[in-house]
Nucleic acid binder design. Sequence first.
DNA 1: ACATTATGTCAATAATACTTGTCAAAACGC
DNA 2: GCGTTTTGACAAGTATTATTGACATAATGT
Lengths: 73, 73
Amino acid sequence: MNNRLRVLRAERKMSQAVLAELLDVSRQTVNAIELGKHDPSLLLAFKVSQVFGLPVEQIFDPGLHGEAKQAAE
Amino acid sequence: MNNRLRVLRAERKMSQAVLAELLDVSRQTVNAIELGKHDPSLLLAFKVSQVFGLPVEQIFDPGLHGEAKQAAE
DNA sequence: ACATTATGTCAATAATACTTGTCAAAACGC
DNA sequence: GCGTTTTGACAAGTATTATTGACATAATGT
């Protein structure tokens, strides 16, 4: 599961620790998700969506189509 | 986490078992999710999204503000 | 150089998603 | 009524994710 957490965080100059607080999870959890070590729960994905003000689909990409990447920006 | 699985399924006259096959999970899993016994993984949520041709946000509803978890029951 | 912040990583544990197997009741068709 | 399908439910087990605590390294600032 690819995700744009790092980019979104960088755009807002937000540390993993700060994001973790906003999401009410540990910093390690944010780190693990950002590095693709595991996927967030659906609820956490929604929280991320809220924090960045973007739909889930524009943050997480299951890569089910392989080629189809996001051209929207 | 509320969801519209039952409605979407009914609209398509699709049984839990058939949906389960499309999602590549067990029927019990579909049932449990539909009844709100637990939430799907993010990946499974994306699969559901694909099957019904709708964005995740239009199928699952976390309460959007984290305030009211399940007020309508 | 030193202190502070940010990040990556490991280990152990808790929580939950998902499984198979099974059973019973409700809904449907014949 | 009878058989089939569908659904709800339960239990026990597996797999995955979330949790904290600790430690190492890199980057930043003074």
